[in-house]
Design a protein around this nucleic acid. Structure first.
Length: 809
RNA sequence: GCGGAUAUGGCGGAACUGGCAGACGCGCAGGACUUAGAAUCCUGUGGGAAACCGUGCAGGUUCGAUUCCUGUUAUCCGCACCA
């Protein structure tokens, strides 16, 4: 078959017939399939795109044939650094390169033959989209979910911008791998921490990969404990510490503040001042990556101040150390060397006292002892278990207003401003008189100006664009300045799935009624790398918009699948430097897009991925040839007189219905490799029947028709062509999916294995509907069994219907 | 250190709820067709001469374990001084 020709032909026909456009009439039967949208790069589609979009499209087509009204949109996550970096390198404006790249990608995506509904296309860099991203920002701002504050933030010196916590990977910039440094800057944050608890608990009910859920749980990092207040000796100030081990409070021998803690400046004594200042300066210079290193020696400095342990009024010294993180908990901890490994090391180094307050159950509990046990040296709490003591101590402290129960989360607020050009401008105006003034909604979008010097120098490129910056304050009318920062591209992608169902709405971001019907997304498919970024942000935005009354559901993605990664033939990740990159284009040219897609579906376990293999793709090509031959040769046969359903026909009918049942189940479960395996078996069964002298041609034609239907989702153009050749009037995708006839799966005779003492010793044939009693009788009467038993007494017989018989002797 | 996963023939990978391990495909071998090759079709293909042995390793539960339990090793991924 001339694949190239039929691909073009059917793609044009499908487009003309609007086969892939969502039909609102059937909204009650909607099924929203979503692949993560892609970044418009200059290169053609890579294997990763294909592996995400191809098999998932087959899933969508399968669902369509099963009667669902499919909504499968596609778009572009078009803002972001790569276009800007490319511009800095080459001088080509990001807008120009992005628009051009989108065009090429649209074309290659069309050539894939996926049923994307292009009428709902989204490009996040277009004003008609980012207008609503800005609107989203304003809603969050007006409801105290967006705020601006000065804080130590992650700064990438290479990208010349701040980064969210999620974008710092092991101290390095997620994008360019430069070492991230800390800087004090005033930045915009989204209050995702308000939703920490809900983001955590709702995970339980999601049909998501366990791993992804675990990563989010881990990232949110809930920690249940308490807060304890230490009054400072000689100051009218207190230090609050967060601890999960309130039971060890009698073992406190010092308290440590993070070097950045504002109290440090207030409490440091004159004598210690020089040393403390030196330490603070050193730590601020220390790169994040080094500070995080576990093997790094613990260092610290005494402030000269003391505070009072609230349980025993003991005076303990206050130290500072960079092993305490300012951004977590209260930025200060109580040091209990006897029961914490870090504190133990620290206390030994600086000669601080070590007092045991927990005794383990067994004998061997050398210090530091971090396990559970019973309290000692803790006055009235002695003898309590750790858990009892935690409750007792904290509630006693609460009564004296010196502490209480407290839950902490590791999750930080989401830093959303960026000092870069190619993003959505933050719709805020700074006025000398009125302060922070949101841009009135009717003035949206705040358009990103074209003529901007975007070479990065640590300041926002927009800040240098006077015609952009200068604006009248919407409140007082006096001259004011715009916010020069742009939004993190993850803001753009945190709500795009809400825009798709109403992509062309010029009046609002989306119609509430519409998206309440269309969402949540029924099946979301994309890479696992977004676990703690896009997937978490999207959940947060959905919940926030729900609370603001814009929608009525709590989770955006009901069911999530991560495709695996296709590696180079050498088993390594594909990369230009390794020279192991597979170009889909070359294979699509040689074999056609259906063959390429099918190989991706057949050669790998979808969620696992694996190394590319050339041999596999040829075998798919061969397989489709086999299908074409049997389908067309059967179609050209004339119906004969023989119309019986005898043994051979029953066998073929069994194969047919077994295939229908298995393929149906496997496609639904994204188990594409086994689905195709069953179709291959079915084709072999057809060849076997075809070789017979006497055939029921009419029946065989029915069987062949089902073959084309089963194959259609996986080889759309190919199947559509065959379908039309065997007389299909409308599109094969509007045809009804075959239904399994269970009665055809009941065989007249079934072969069972007979085990004697759990080893297979014989095979028996039993009627398909035989009950256990009959099966046992046949087994025990079998010659092979009698021989194998060799006169031994039968003690017990276990019959597993349809499987085997085990005789214990 | 914490969390999650994975481990099955020469290779990619199957195995539903504990029930004949290795589906399907690649590769390989043999055969058919052909003047010959390619293509195609058919047959065989875990190891072992056999008894038997085989799902990373060591135990356990069970009539029966790739599957459940305990321990352990290796690899991959994520987080990591989170108090």
């Amino acid at each position: 078959m001339d694949m190239k020709a039929i691909e073009k032909k059917w793609q044009a026909k499908w487009e003309k017939d609007k086969l892939h456009v969502f039909d609102k009439k059937n909204i009650d039967n909607k099924y929203y399939v979503l692949e993560m949208f892609s970044y418009p790069s200059a290169a053609k589609l890579h294997v990763g795109h294909w592996y995400n979009y191809g098999p998932t499209d087959s899933f969508a087509r399968y669902k369509k044939m099963k009667g669902c009204e499919i909504f499968q949109p596609m778009g572009f996550d078009a803002f972001g650094l790569p276009a800007e970096n490319y511009a800095i390198k080459t001088g080509v404006h990001p807008e120009d390169s992005t628009v051009k790249n989108i065009e090429t990608m649209e074309n290659t995506l069309r050539e894939m033959g996926a049923m994307f509904d292009w009428s709902a296309e989204i490009k996040t860099c277009m004003p008609d989209y980012y207008k609503w991203t800005q609107w989203l920002f304003l809603q969050l701002y007006k409801n105290n979910l967006a705020y601006r504050k000065e804080a130590p933030v992650n700064w990438c010196p290479d990208c010349q911008t701040v980064l969210a916590n999620e974008q710092v990977v092991q101290g390095l910039c997620e994008r360019c791998k430069s070492t991230v440094v800390q800087k004090d800057l005033t930045q915009w944050f989204f209050k995702i921490t308000d939703y920490a608890e809900e983001l955590l608990t709702c995970l339980d009910d999601l049909d998501w990969p366990e791993k992804t859920k675990a990563m989010q749980r881990n990232w949110i990092g809930k920690s249940v404990g308490g807060e304890i207040t230490f009054k400072l000796d000689g100051f009218d100030e207190t230090i609050k510490v967060f601890t999960t081990r309130a039971d060890t409070v009698y073992g406190v021998s010092y308290v440590v503040l993070a070097p950045e803690h504002p109290l440090v400046k207030k409490i440091t004594t004159k004598k210690q001042l020089q040393e403390v200042e030196k330490y603070i300066e050193e730590t601020s210079k220390t790169k994040e990556i080094e500070r995080l290193s576990l093997d790094r020696e613990k260092t610290g400095v005494f402030t000269g101040a003391y505070c009072i342990n609230p349980v025993n009024n003991q005076k303990v010294p206050v130290w500072i150390s960079d092993y305490v993180l300012y951004s977590y908990g209260t930025g200060s901890v109580m040091g209990v060397p006897s029961h914490d490994e870090r504190d133990f090391v620290f206390a030994n180094k600086y000669n601080l006292p070590i007092t045991r307050v927990i005794k383990g159950a067994c004998g061997n509990d050398d210090l530091p002892f971090t396990g559970d046990g019973t309290l000692v040296n803790s006055v009235s709490y002695d003898g309590l278990t750790c858990e009892e003591a935690r409750k007792a101590i904290l509630s006693d402290l609460a009564k004296r207003d010196l502490g209480g129960f407290k839950v902490n989360y590791r999750l930080r607020d989401w830093l959303v401003s960026r000092q870069r050009y190619w993003g959505a401008p933050i719709p805020i105006i700074h006025c000398e008189h009125c302060g922070i003034v949101p841009v009135p909604e009717e003035d949206l979008p705040v358009k990103l100006p074209y003529n901007v010097e975007f070479k990065p120098d640590g300041k926002s490129p927009l800040a240098k664009c006077e015609e952009f910056m200068n604006v009248k304050c919407p409140k007082c009318g006096k001259p004011a300045r715009r916010d020069p920062d742009t939004l993190d591209t993850f803001v753009c992608s945190s709500w795009y799935f809400l825009r798709y169902p109403d992509a062309n709405n010029a009046k609002e971001a989306f119609d509430k009624e519409k998206i309440n019907k269309m969402l949540p997304v029924d099946k979301y498919v994309g890479g696992a790398e977004h676990a703690c970024m896009h997937l978490l942000y999207s959940r947060f935005i959905t919940k926030a918009l729900r609370d603001l009354g814009y929608l009525d559901f709590s989770e955006p993605f009901k069911s999530l699948v991560h495709q695996g990664v296709i590696l180079g033939p050498d088993g390594n990740r594909m990369s230009k430097s390794r020279g192991n990159v597979i170009s889909p284009d070359d294979y699509v040219k040689e074999f056609g897009s259906d063959v390429f897609r099918m190989y991706l579906m057949f050669g790998f376990s979808y969620t696992e991925g694996g190394p590319w293999n050339d041999g596999g793709i040829k075998s798919i090509n061969k397989f489709l040839d086999r299908v074409e031959k049997i389908v067309l040769s059967t179609h050209s046969l004339k119906n004969g007189k023989y119309q019986e359903m005898q043994r051979n026909e029953k066998e073929l009918n069994y194969a047919r219905n077994y295939a229908i049942k298995s393929v149906d189940r496997d496609m639904d479960a994204f188990s594409f490799n086994t689905a195709l395996a069953r179709i291959m078996e079915y084709v072999s069964a057809l060849y076997k029947y075809d070789a017979l002298e006497v055939k029921n041609v009419q029946f065989m034609k029915e069987c062949v028709k089902d073959l084309v239907l089963l194959l259609a989702p996986c080889a759309p153009h190919f199947a559509e062509e065959l379908w039309s050749k065997i007389g299909g009037k409308k599109s094969v995708f509007n045809a009804e999916y075959p239904v399994c006839d269970e009665s055809a799966l009941v065989k007249d005779e079934v072969e069972l294995a007979v085990q004697i003492n759990s080893k297979v010793r014989a095979k028996i044939l039993v009627p398909g509907d035989a009950d256990n009693e009959l099966i046992e009788k046949i087994a025990l009467e079998s010659d092979q069994v009698i021989k194998a038993l060799d006169g031994k007494q039968v003690k017990k017989v276990i019959v597993i219907k349809g499987r085997l018989v085990n005789i214990i002797a």
